[in-house]
């Protein structure tokens, strides 16, 4: 069972990013990402939207596959910033393990 926190996208602002709710999951970021890896990074952005914090932390290593190259953010038709969202999630994950 996954616990969801609908306010998570709001909470993530303290780590720098506030565009997760702009994303409508079109998949442009997945298509253009140089990783060519399943549904990366869209899946993680969806987790932010529904507030699946546990899943993000459970799969935290995936965050560091992101090269921070910025191609997804350059191409996003919604003006969301997938690269920035992943960077914020990295900060969130680092803060989480340092707190624990």
């Amino acid at each position: 069972m996954t616990k969801i926190s609908p306010q998570f996208a709001e909470d993530l602002k303290q780590y720098g990013e506030d565009t997760a709710l702009e994303c409508f999951n079109c998949g442009t970021c997945v298509a253009i990402c140089p990783l060519i890896d399943g549904s990366f990074p869209r899946k993680l952005i969806r987790y932010v939207q529904i507030g699946a914090k546990d899943r993000i932390l459970l799969n935290r290593n995936e965050l560091w596959k992101c090269l921070h190259c910025g191609l997804c953010s350059e191409s996003c038709p919604r003006g969301a910033d997938p690269g920035g969202i992943l960077l914020s999630l990295k900060r969130y994950a680092v803060a989480s393990w340092r707190k624990s």
Partner: peptide, 26 residues
Amino acid sequence: GSFTNCCGGPAESVSPKLADEVGLRR
């Protein structure tokens, strides 16, 4: 230019394999 493709280098510290995969395509 603004649509350049990554060399893969930023992944070097966490996964040299991933860095190679991306770098070979570039």
